[in-house]
Simulated assay, not measured.
Amino acid sequence: MTAADGEREQRPLDQPHVSRMPADVTYRAEILTAHNGALAAGSAGYLDPRTGLFVLSAGFLAARGTCCGRGCRHCPYVK
């Protein structure tokens, strides 16, 4: 089954898939802090701490029900 089929990967929403955010990303801790704050607040996303761009949270993406195929950082459907 592919991500587009709508079945979520079985991992916690606060853990991005390694293909979308490798462990060696320079500011990984900052990203995860911002993302986890958005998850806790039930927000659709957060501002990336370095670029200022709006990034959708895994919670928001999971609620959509399917992967959009655009390579979202926190996509819960990536396997």
Rank of each mutant, 00 (worst) to 15 (best):
H35N: 03
L53K: 15
V55I: 15
E30H: 12
T33S: 09
T51D: 03
T33E: 13
G37W: 06
H35L: 01
G45T: 04
A44S: 11
T33G: 03
T33K: 12
G45R: 00
T66M: 08
L39A: 04
A34E: 07
V55Y: 03
A29D: 15
T51W: 05
Y46H: 04
G45W: 00
Y46S: 03
A58Q: 01
S43P: 00
T26L: 12
G65A: 03
A44G: 14
G65P: 00
V55P: 00
L53Q: 13
N36H: 15
R28E: 08
L39C: 06
F60K: 00
A40P: 04
A62Y: 01
A40S: 11
V25D: 06
G59L: 05
A29C: 03
Y46A: 02
L56D: 01
A23Y: 14
G59S: 10
A63S: 14
G42M: 05
A40I: 06
I31H: 08
S57K: 01
T51Y: 04
Y46E: 01
R64A: 10
R28L: 10
I31P: 03
A58C: 03
L53C: 08
G37K: 13
L56V: 02
A44P: 05
N36D: 14
A40C: 06
A38T: 07
S57I: 00
G45V: 02
F54P: 06
G52Y: 14
L56C: 06
A58F: 01
I31Q: 08
L56F: 11
T66N: 10
G37T: 14
T33L: 08
A44Q: 11
T66G: 04
A40T: 08
S43R: 09
I31L: 13
P49T: 07
E30Q: 14
L32E: 08
A29V: 09
S43K: 10
A40H: 05
A41G: 04
S43V: 02
A38W: 02
G45S: 04
T33C: 04
L32A: 05
A29G: 02
A62C: 06
T51H: 03
R28P: 06
L39F: 09
L56Y: 10
P49S: 07
L61E: 11
V25W: 12
P22M: 08
T66K: 12
A23E: 15
A34V: 05
A41M: 04
M21C: 13
G37Q: 13
R64T: 10
A62N: 05
L61P: 09
L39G: 05
L47N: 14
A44L: 06
G59H: 09
T26W: 12
G45F: 01
R64K: 13
S43F: 11
R64C: 10
S57V: 00
Y46Q: 04
F60R: 00
G45N: 02
G37V: 09
E30R: 12
A62Q: 05
T33H: 07
L47T: 12
V55R: 01
T26Q: 11
G59A: 10
A23K: 15
H35C: 02
A62R: 05
A63K: 14
R28V: 02
F60D: 00
H35V: 00
Y27W: 13
R50M: 13
T66P: 00
G52D: 10
P49L: 09
F60Q: 00
L53N: 13
S57N: 03
A34D: 03
L56I: 00
